[in-house]
Amino acid sequence: MSWVSRPLNSSIGCKVIMSVTGLLLVGFLLAHLSGNLLVFAGEEAINLYAKTLRDYLPILWLLRIGLIVMAVLHIFSGVKLTRMNSKAKPVKYKVKQSVKASFASRYMGLTGLVVLAFIAYHLAHLTFRFTHPAFQSLGDYDVYKMLMLSFSNPVLAIGYCICVILLMVHLSHGVSSLFQTLGINHKKYNGLIRSIGPALSTLLAIGYLSIPLSILLGFIK
């Protein structure tokens, strides 16, 4: 299987894994958001959505496993590439000016780590419900109440918002970047490709931030 392992171990191979898994994870973010936005349709709608998901448990698990594999691969190759990179430039410049590199592109590792921590907390918070013992007493599908309880707490709401913003910073570079890594580049479309990342992450940010902010500010009661 050397024809599989060798390219995947090469720097470009690793980057291809990074970009393909990243792309699929962005797909998840879109799907996840479309579900979440049901909160604006009212308690029943979102709880029905949660219930429906669980009604098809095998499919849900299939998706979950896929998601986990994607995330693990994404993290694994990210760590591998980062280690390669820090080995490639062990001594930094005393004075360093970036001419062109965006903030997002320079701190992908850092924003990635924050996102990882956020996901861990997010799962513990809303999926496994470790952090809020009070949730344990709620019914399985009462997503609506969980959201209301959580985001009316300003600390949680603002913390969530900050993490979402960092995730979007990560995406604003990552999404445009994956086109470059997969070799999708054409003079005519480069402007479009380079704005996809920032545009998509802005849209996702608006969607994801609208929920906690609406709850915190009392638009949803």
């Binding site: 390669m84 990179n85 965006s102 592109s105 970047s177």
Partner: peptide
Amino acid sequence: GFGNCTNTFECEA
């Protein structure tokens, strides 16, 4: 021992 490209495009600049 070169690193890999994270598409910051500093090289082009």
